[in-house]
Design a protein around this nucleic acid. Structure first.
Lengths: 133, 133
DNA sequence: GGCGGATGCTCAGCAGGCTGAACAATGGGC
DNA sequence: GCCCATTGTTCAGCCTGCTGAGCATCCGCC
């Protein structure tokens, strides 16, 4: 009925990503969290980081990260502190609420991956990302 | 250096999709076209369609499609016509400029896929999309 | 003929990508 | 010590997702 077969690979990728993300967001909404926020919290787990460092790790621009953090701060999942060494810099820290949400989200993510069983794609996706277009 | 290996599959998918899309957008910008626009034009090739039908085929909401078409009309890649049968409906048609852009974009897409050679992912992506979460 | 639900589209508002530009703080070189 | 390039963040603006609401048209049924 729909010629998914004939879609170019780029479109298949976006469609699949959007589908999975949309599905997962339904759960995250209960935690007052978004996909982008969850990824950011993940990187904050092992200690405070500057926004730039976070952006690099999450693979988004500084500007996008700025807004994501603004949202995390608003919802109380993280907070910002001035870096006393370098006053240009902001240190972002995960909060208790943030840690709890992250744990819950990760558990759900595990269940989700198990249910879907799409592990077979992983190696190819990793290889693709490593190509660093 | 970056533990891509440990990312959950959902994140791998989004990251890969964004990477490919960003790369392809660099080319599309020269055609005054976007990824969403190109997909829409693709479905218009075989004849005019209503916005709702287009949205279904492109797998986006009616609202998103409304804006995409607005943009395509603004750039002259498509135009809207009233459906005389049903005045609620708008018939969207691809223009000559649209057809030309589509042909060019598709050619580039082919080259791109060849260069990257990520065909191996296709079957799994198709299977995933078919699951219709 | 007229009412009410279904259908097709748009508006408003939020989130998250991106680019380009502005702005403050830092720090190296003269 | 001062100037200027670099660095870290933010603002503005655009595009594309989404949801929730609103509005016009259509159509079936009484």
């Amino acid at each position: 009925m729909e010629d998914v077969e004939s879609w170019p690979t780029g479109r298949l990728l976006s469609a699949a990503a959007r589908m999975v993300e949309r599905r997962f967001d339904r759960f995250l909404a209960d935690l007052d969290l978004t996909h982008a926020g969850m990824i950011t919290l993940h990187h904050l787990e092992s200690g405070p980081l500057s926004q730039r460092e976070l952006a690099r790790l999450c693979r988004v621009t500084d500007q996008t990260m700025s807004r994501t953090i603004e949202r995390l701060a608003r919802t109380g999942h993280a907070d910002r502190a001035e870096d006393t060494q370098d006053r240009r810099r902001t240190l972002v820290r995960i909060s208790v609420k943030g840690t709890e949400a992250l744990v819950a989200a990760r558990a759900e993510e595990k269940r989700f991956e198990k249910d879907l069983g799409y592990d077979a794609i992983r190696p190819q996706l990793i290889a693709l990302i490593r190509k660093q277009l």
